[in-house]
Each structure stands twice: as structure tokens, then as C-alpha cells.
Design a binder for these strands. Structure first.
Lengths: 190, 190
DNA sequence: GGAACTACGTGATGTGCATCACATTTTTCA
DNA sequence: TGAAAAATGTGATGCACATCACGTAGTTCC
């Protein structure tokens, strides 16, 4: 399917735009291809855009002082990703994004999003809903991290996103769950 | 200060409403008083409203099967609280809210918020920004939970919200940080 | 003002998971 | 296609924190 059509159907679930409005909306996006392993946002970068995934899989992550990686999100097709703190505030990126597989994305600059939101009420509506969904999901994950042990979290993740099992290396799944790769390995070999 | 004025100044930071628009906006809120210990949202309730805190302190929390409590948020004046998953989806509450101190709040029903958002573009703008802020803060807390040990998290919390130290019992701070009350007690007595 | 409840402190013990170390397999790419 | 790099498996050891148990101080409220 066309990039345009993918985005259109995605938006249509929560906002109703006329064809002209959607054409204008879509015209603000820039399509871009990335290779596996390529960096989209690096630590310390100025963050200009957010990214809508058309194809492939991204990860957004944080690396601490001991070079340990923590994954915030695996971004699959129709998911959005960015360092939203940096993007909204103008601060430098603390969250990085790179490509787990080759990827095809649509880029939208912060300036264009704000412009679209102020020009088209329905676009603002869409972004409110999207952000709300992310907020609720993140709260749920926070609770899961406090409440459940590593095995529970692993099983819950595999149940919700079975595709991840073959798509992303195990040590990245560990970095998402917040356990060491060794512990994760022991979990599913028993 | 008047409830109306508190809300007005709060909104004005991110949205510009005319006086008439704000009057209409405010007319959708219902002011309510609660006593210390009182439940605002109980597990399993239908959630009708979200709450804007004028005075006092609320907590939003989850209780697991072992009756262990995990606190998502301490809601202080000018903060918003609800079970947003239940509120938006119509599902029954899994998050509860009650009062740590006597409290004064403004209630806004889900239906009224959606109505206001669709009628007044600036209101939708406000709620997009508020939710975005919550999203970013929750992500940050998730990272902190994965990255830092209990002492770090405790010190970061006390630095950011020193008022909590005298305002809320220590075992609730423990439930927020995701450690046992015993461990927390040992942390700051050393 | 005394009983009941809640908050808090602190020792002893247990455990889930991290860390270190090294072997093995799989993937990458020149 | 063969060498280097990345991913994975597995044992041994250590530690941060949970849990249990019990004592004390402060608060609530009939």
C-alpha cells in the first residue's frame, strides 16, 4: 500500500479530514528510507521531527553512564516515535532512535505539526488522542515494572507482541524488559 | 484565590481563550470537597470525571492481588488526576484515587471534556499539551525505575518535590518509589 | 483519657536478579 | 568463503532489596 494510504487510514480512525485537508496534511510529511543499524536520532542531537513508521522496526532508547541501554519503545509500522521531550522543548536529545531493520518512515517536523494542529482542529484532535494512548500505555508499563517480576513481564510482552520474538535480538528484548540478557536467557530456557 | 482564577491562570499558560470562552469552559466544571481518606475513584467504578486539584493532595494508585499498593501519582494543586484508561475507554477503574489530605477539586466529565474539545479548538490544544507533558514525565519515571537504585530515586524525588517529605506518610513515598517501606526507612536513616 | 489503629524503626533471613567469566553459535561483510 | 563481530548459553558469585517478625511512638476517636 501507498505511504499516503497507510497514513490516511491510520488518521481516519480518530479524526475526520476532507480529502483536501488530508492532502495538505500529507504534504507536510517527507518520506525517508533507512538501513538496518542506521541512527535516526543520536544523543545530543537537535530533534526536528517525529517519525511515522511505514515499514521495518525502530527502537527508541536511553544509554546511561555505564553504557547500559534501556529501550523505551519498539516502533513497528503505524507507530510513531521521537524524543518527545527534546522535540517539544527544544532541548538536546537524551533518547536515541535507530533502525533494528531496514525501515521506511514519514518525517514530520515539530514546526509543521504545530502549524497543522493550529490550522486543522481535527489534526489537533488526532494528536491529542495519540498522545493519550501513549500516556496510558506508559503508565501501564510502569505499573508492570513495579508489580511483576522479569518472567511475568517477558511472558506478557511475548503474548502482546509475538512478532518481536523473531524480529529483534534477545538482548534488546532484555533491554526493554529491564533485565540483563543473561537473566532473560535463563528465563525462557526453563 | 478563587477556583475560577486558579483554573484560568493554569489554562492561560498553554491556551488563549476569550473571557466568554473561559466562562463557558469553567461552567462545565463542578467544584467538590473531600475529606482526608475519602475515596474519589474506587476499583471497579465507572469513571465519569477527571479532577483538577485546587487544594490538598490526592494519590492515584493500583493495588495488586497481594494487596500491595503502587502509587502512580501524588496530585497537588493545579495537577490533574483520573484513571485515564477507564475514563477514555469506558472500562471499569483499575486505578483508584483517594485523598491524602482534605481536598478541594474541580470535576470535569469525560463527555464535557470531549464536547469542549470539539467546540473550542484552544481547549483541545490545552489538553494535547497537558497529556504530552504527562507522557514525557511518565517515560522519564520509567527510565529512572529501570536505571537507578532505590536511593537515587528517593533522592531525586525529594529534590524535585521536597514538600512531599512532610506532607505524605513515608510508606506512601515507598509505594511511589517501588520499594518496601522497610527499605525506604533504612535508606534515609543512614 | 484510654483503646485501637496507623506510622515508623530495625534485626534476621531469603531471593531474584546483576555481574563476571568464558564457551558456542550465528551473522556480517570484505 | 573465511575471518571478525555480534548474539546467545551457562556456571559461579555477590548484592540490593523483599519479607518476616517484633518493638515503639504517634494519632484517632468514642
Amino acid at each position: 500500500m501507498e505511504a499516503k494510504e497507510v497514513l490516511k487510514q491510520h488518521i481516519a480512525k480518530t479524526a475526520s479530514l476532507t480529502d483536501e485537508q488530508f492532502d495538505y496534511f500529507f504534504s507536510c510529511f517527507k518520506q525517508q528510507s533507512y538501513k538496518k543499524g542506521q541512527t535516526i536520532i543520536g544523543e545530543g542531537d537537535r530533534v526536528e521531527c517525529e517519525y511515522f513508521v511505514l515499514d521495518g522496526c525502530l527502537k527508541s532508547f536511553y544509554i546511561n553512564d555505564d553504557m547500559k541501554m534501556f529501550i523505551l519503545q519498539f516502533a513497528m509500522p503505524t507507530w510513531w516515535a521521537s524524543d518527545y521531550n527534546a522535540l517539544y522543548s527544544g532541548a538536546k536529545a537524551t533518547i536515541s532512535i535507530d533502525c533494528i531493520t531496514n525501515a521506511e518512515v514519514l518525517c514530520l517536523t515539530n514546526a509543521d505539526r504545530e502549524k497543522l494542529c493550529s490550522e486543522l482542529h481535527q489534526v489537533e484532535h488526532f494528536f491529542r488522542w495519540r498522545t493519550n494512548k501513549g500516556y496510558v500505555a506508559t503508565q501501564k508499563r510502569l505499573l508492570s515494572l513495579m508489580n511483576n517480576d522479569a518472567r511475568h513481564r517477558y511472558e506478557a510482552l511475548m503474548e502482546q507482541y509475538p512478532a518481536l520474538y523473531n524480529l529483534v535480538p534477545k538482548h534488546l528484548i532484555a533491554a526493554y524488559l529491564g533485565v540483563s540478557r543473561e537473566t532473560l536467557s535463563r528465563l525462557y530456557n526453563s
